[in-house]
Simulated scan of single mutants.
Amino acid sequence: MRGTKYKILALLKQSKAIVSGESLAKELKVSRTAIWKSIRDLEKLGYQIEHLANGYRFLSSNVLEAEEIAFDALLAENIFIEKQIDSTMNAAKVAGMNHQATPALFLTETQTGGRGRYGRSFFSPGGQIYMTLLLEPNRTFEELPQYTLLTAVAVASAIDEVTGKTCSIKWVNDIFLNGKKVCGILSEAMSDFETGQISHVTIGIGLNFAIPNEQFPEELQTIASSLFPKGAPTITRNELIQKIWRNFFELLDGLPDTTYLDYYRNKSFVIGKIVSFTQRGITYSGKALRISDAGELIVQTTAGEMTLSSGEISLSAIDGKQLK
Rank of each mutant, 00 (worst) to 15 (best):
Y263A: 13
E296V: 06
A156K: 07
E143K: 11
G113K: 04
T112I: 03
E296H: 06
K267N: 13
V275A: 10
V162D: 12
I318M: 08
G21M: 08
K13Y: 14
G114Y: 05
M1T: 09
Y260I: 06
Q221L: 06
N98E: 14
I81M: 03
E218N: 13
R237V: 08
F216M: 04
S226T: 02
H200Q: 05
N54E: 15
N266P: 08
R32T: 10
I271N: 02
A76D: 10
P212V: 12
I85C: 01
I298H: 07
V182D: 05
V275N: 08
T195L: 09
F141H: 02
Y56A: 14
I271S: 04
T151G: 01
T88A: 03
T102G: 00
Y263S: 10
M1A: 13
Y284V: 09
A25I: 05
A189N: 12
L240M: 11
N266C: 10
W171D: 07
R120L: 10
K7I: 11
S285F: 04
L149S: 07
D262M: 15
V19A: 15
L255Y: 06
I274L: 09
Y47E: 08
Y284E: 11
Y284W: 15
G55S: 13
E22A: 11
T88F: 02
I8S: 12
G126K: 10
K170F: 02
L220F: 04
I241W: 05
Y6A: 11
D257V: 12
N78R: 06
N238C: 10
T140I: 03
G119F: 08
R139M: 15
I39E: 06
D293W: 04
Q300F: 06
T88Q: 04
L144N: 11
R265D: 12
A95M: 01
L308K: 06
R265V: 07
E214W: 08
L42M: 08
R290F: 08
F80R: 06
V153K: 00
I198V: 08
I271Q: 00
Q197W: 10
I244T: 00
A92G: 03
N62H: 15
M1P: 06
K324W: 12
T278L: 14
F176Q: 01
Q128C: 11
G206L: 10
I298Y: 00
I198N: 02
T278V: 15
A232N: 01
L150Q: 10
D293L: 15
G113M: 07
L105N: 07
E65Y: 03
L207T: 02
E219W: 00
G254Y: 04
Q128R: 14
F80C: 00
Q100L: 13
K5P: 00
W36F: 13
L74R: 09
F269A: 04
G113H: 09
V94C: 04
F228A: 05
V299T: 09
